[in-house]
Structures are given as structure tokens and as C-alpha cells.
Simulated assay, not measured.
Amino acid sequence: MRSLPGHRAHHRPHPTLTDRTAVLATANRAGFLILAAQAGLTHGTLQQRAAVQGFVSEPALIRRLVDAAEQAGLDIALNDWLDAEYDGPGTGFTVTTGDGHDVIFGQALGLADLKAMWPKLPHAVDGVASALQITLADPQFGPSALLWGALAAATGPAAPSPAPKIMCWECGCTFQSNCADGCIGGVQDQDDGRCPACIDPSVVIDWSTNCDGEEKECRLCGAPFFHAGAYCSLGCEAADGYGDQNEDEDEQPSPAAARPHVSDPDDPWATSPF
């Protein structure tokens, strides 16, 4: 867009914003449609605060902008066109003073204001009417990088997140292959990188003291266990083909073997070899 009503046509950014064009362009590409921006400065009686105001539709970007602004201690104004229609423009806050004509940012814009900005672009008016109007300003007059740093942090590319640790670096267990009874879920402390059993061995259940049943031997691997069935784990049962079909009648199936029949008998895929 080459110009807006009330702005000089075909004019480049103000010289005081030359060093800020990169962060402003990044913010626009991220979804913060910036309507106006100014740098902080002092020149004689003229005092000016760094400030930006514009439109944002994406909720995640709104949260990032507000969070960054609050952490930096910036002045924040949030409005929509309904605020202007029902409550008026509001007071906003003065960002330029001392030259006989104060400049105010942060006032709510109504539909009439939006139509005046884009008089021949009704689709643009529809787009910004549903967006949130956001204004951010440095709390102090004069040169400052506070606003620009917060804007860059909120709209710049996010730092890549480290890959989650899923294998215990001490014993090698994962959430699918736990190292012992009581060690459930693999690595749960991402900072430590070990499973609960390696961090605190007391979490491992000693079935010889916690189970009244007799010790049994896994049919496949020979490991001792104390629960019902013929296998120590689901893995052993699956690896052994769910056990011998001619299993003794008095042998109770393990919990892993109890699988409900969900196939439709009329379903041709139920008997498919594939």
C-alpha cells in the first residue's frame, strides 16, 4: 500500500525509523499490521516516545505481544471497533508533546475511522474490523530500544525447541520399555534425563514383599514374576504368539491376553490373510 489518507504519498519511512524498518517489517509479516510507528526522541521542547499501533487477528500472536510488552514494562492499549462505537475513542496516551500539537496513540478506532483509512477497499475494512487494535509504547520519552526489543521478541522467529529426551541415559529404558516394575513412563524429568528408577531406586517394586502370590517363571524368557498368567510382560506374550493354544485349562490367561472380539463376522476382512 503506497499511502493512506492523511499521509504523504510515495514516502519512505521517517529517517528516525531507518534503523527500525527490519523489526517493523518482521512484525508485519508475523501478522501485526502496523498502522503507525514512531521512534523515541528529544529535540528542544519536542519530546517523543517510541510507539507502534496496529491490528492483530491471531490469538497466539496477541498473547506473545502482550506478554512481551508486560515483561518489558511498556504501556499497552487494547481496543476493537465496538469500544469506539459504544464507549467512544477513549483517552489513549500521549506519545508526542512539546511542539504545540500532542500526538495520541491507543484510542479505539470505529468503523467510520477504518473506512476512512481504506475508502475503496471494503475487504480490507472487513479484515481489520474483526482484529484487535494493539498499541505499545515506551513509558519514557526519548531514545530507547525497549519497545523494539519487545516487538522483536514477540514477532521474530522462535528459537528451536530441543528434542525431548525419551531414553534414560543411565539404563536405556523408554516409556515403552521400562527397566523395572514401578518405573513407568521412561524419562519424566527432562532436565535430569533419567527414568524414575535410576533417579530413585526405591520406586522399583519388590514383588517378593508386595505380593502374596507365589513366584512364577515367564514361559518365554524365564524371568520371575508374581501376577496371573504365564508371561512376565505383554512383550513376552506377544513375542510368543500369545501362548500355546493347548494351554492347560487350569492356567488362567494373563490380563494382556484378554482382548475383546470386535470384528464383524460378516466382514470379509475379518478372515483376510493380510
Results as ranks from 00 to 15, higher is better:
residue 57 S to T: 14
residue 63 R to Y: 08
residue 58 E to K: 06
residue 59 P to F: 01
residue 60 A to D: 12
residue 86 Y to H: 15
residue 63 R to K: 10
residue 91 T to W: 06
residue 38 Q to G: 08
residue 270 A to W: 05
residue 252 Q to R: 09
residue 154 A to F: 03
residue 225 F to I: 04
residue 252 Q to D: 05
residue 182 G to K: 06
residue 231 Y to L: 05
residue 245 Q to N: 05
residue 211 C to E: 11
residue 66 V to R: 04
residue 119 P to R: 14
residue 134 I to P: 00
residue 128 V to T: 08
residue 221 C to V: 07
residue 143 P to M: 04
residue 225 F to R: 09
residue 229 G to V: 09
residue 21 T to Q: 08
residue 236 C to R: 05
residue 222 G to R: 06
residue 47 Q to T: 01
residue 149 G to F: 11
residue 215 E to G: 03
residue 273 P to I: 08
residue 206 D to E: 14
residue 250 D to L: 09
residue 84 A to R: 13
residue 141 F to E: 05
residue 200 D to F: 04
residue 127 G to W: 15
residue 167 M to L: 09
residue 111 L to D: 06
residue 263 S to F: 09
residue 153 A to S: 12
residue 138 D to T: 01
residue 119 P to H: 14
residue 223 A to T: 13
residue 237 E to R: 09
residue 130 S to L: 02
residue 147 L to V: 09
residue 31 G to S: 00
residue 139 P to V: 04
residue 83 D to N: 15
residue 226 F to V: 02
residue 159 A to V: 15
residue 107 Q to Y: 05
residue 265 P to R: 11
residue 21 T to L: 05
residue 192 D to N: 10
residue 16 T to R: 10
residue 62 I to R: 00
residue 183 C to N: 15
residue 143 P to C: 03
residue 164 P to R: 15
residue 22 A to F: 01
residue 72 A to R: 04
residue 118 W to Y: 15
residue 215 E to L: 12
residue 241 G to A: 01
residue 135 T to G: 04
residue 20 R to K: 13
residue 178 N to D: 08
residue 36 A to T: 04
residue 132 L to T: 15
residue 118 W to N: 10
residue 266 D to I: 01
residue 37 A to D: 07
residue 51 A to V: 02
residue 52 V to L: 01
residue 215 E to W: 06
residue 265 P to T: 12
residue 27 A to M: 06
residue 260 P to E: 10
residue 243 G to H: 11
residue 100 G to K: 14
residue 202 S to W: 02
residue 98 G to A: 08
residue 166 I to L: 15
residue 137 A to G: 10
residue 52 V to Q: 01
residue 61 L to M: 00
residue 79 N to M: 07
residue 125 V to L: 09
residue 200 D to E: 15
residue 268 P to E: 12
residue 100 G to T: 11
residue 168 C to G: 07
residue 166 I to S: 12
residue 162 P to R: 12
residue 38 Q to L: 04
residue 34 I to Q: 04
residue 240 D to C: 11
residue 154 A to C: 11
residue 145 A to L: 10
residue 221 C to K: 04
residue 26 T to L: 01
residue 222 G to I: 08
residue 197 A to H: 08
residue 135 T to I: 03
residue 11 H to S: 11
residue 274 F to W: 14
residue 24 L to Q: 02
residue 251 E to T: 13
residue 261 H to G: 04
residue 237 E to Q: 14
residue 165 K to G: 03
residue 117 M to S: 12
residue 231 Y to T: 03
residue 263 S to T: 13
residue 124 A to K: 11
residue 49 R to A: 02
residue 224 P to H: 13
residue 70 E to G: 11
residue 133 Q to G: 05
residue 221 C to F: 11
residue 253 P to H: 10
residue 77 A to Q: 13
residue 8 R to F: 14
residue 196 P to W: 06
residue 62 I to D: 05
residue 39 A to D: 11
